[in-house]
Design a protein around this nucleic acid. Structure first.
Lengths: 136, 136
DNA sequence: ATCCTACGATGGACAGAGTCTAAGTCAAGA
DNA sequence: TCTTGACTTAGACTCTGTCCATCGTAGGAT
């Protein structure tokens, strides 16, 4: 993650304690936190940090492709720091747990030319749903 | 869609004018409307219908697998009446247009056993993203 | 080391999407 | 026709996220 801080600095990011803390929180464990969860953890380390700053910082990290935004449930978006290894998500329909998974093959290839309607394809997002072992 | 009304009646649904109107709106053109868009169209036909009723009815239709809930943009959920033909979605990253598409093969098959982490798989949701001809 | 200033942080108001509740209404079976 | 529980309503409320005016400070210039 010091990598991340380095990269950001290299891109002209002004390094503030708030931004550092947000980056550190994301680096913690590779879970998929909501913005408010990130905020809650950030507050542990830097009590004055505001919600707006966390939202702003997350938005920037997404723009810079350092973090992926995932919305698996139509409620709060979740932030996935594992942005440099292409992967998809497996979600438990009951408890909402999210796991990163790696399907075989290129999912884009499954869409035949005549089903692309002249679109310029750029990405595919796959969400597998089911029950996790504890919920099943 | 009269089919739908029949099926719902068969399942013990109390048939009210509000529910009928919501079903008719969904049957209109096969676009992917948000709940508030459904409400706006329902009001044309039944001015007193309330937002809460539209939300309730949509939720029930989703529970009964008569309509699919799609959240492609992390904002308002959209409702897809094409629930009886399995399909996926192609979304324009700029204008948000959604098209139903039919990939080849079973997307579930792409997830190898060892990547399922003991989950009982039930469905896969694939969203292709790109620019539509008008936006490209 | 200090000064400047533009970029970033703050918090509180605001907005969009959706849910809940208490009270009123009505579909459909007796 | 009567009855009753399911359905509807309006509006308050919650949750997620954005905006704005103001204040603070990182980091280059001196």
């Amino acid at each position: 993650m010091s990598d991340l801080l380095e990269r950001l600095r290299g891109r002209g990011w002004r390094m503030t304690s708030q931004r550092r803390v947000v980056a550190e929180v994301l680096d913690g464990d590779h879970v998929h936190l909501t913005a408010d969860e990130v905020h809650a953890r950030a507050v542990q380390r830097l009590p004055e940090i505001s919600r707006a700053t966390v939202y702003n910082t997350l938005r920037e990290l997404v723009t810079l492709d350092e973090v992926i935004e995932v919305s698996t449930d139509g409620r709060a978006k979740r932030y996935d720091p594992n942005a440099h290894h292409p992967h998809q998500h497996l979600v438990c329909s009951r408890c909402g747990t999210i796991r990163d998974v790696h399907p075989t093959g290129d999912p884009l290839a499954a869409l035949p030319e005549e089903e692309r309607f002249g679109f310029t394809m750029s990405e595919v997002e796959v969400t597998y749903r089911g029950l996790c072992p504890s919920c099943a």
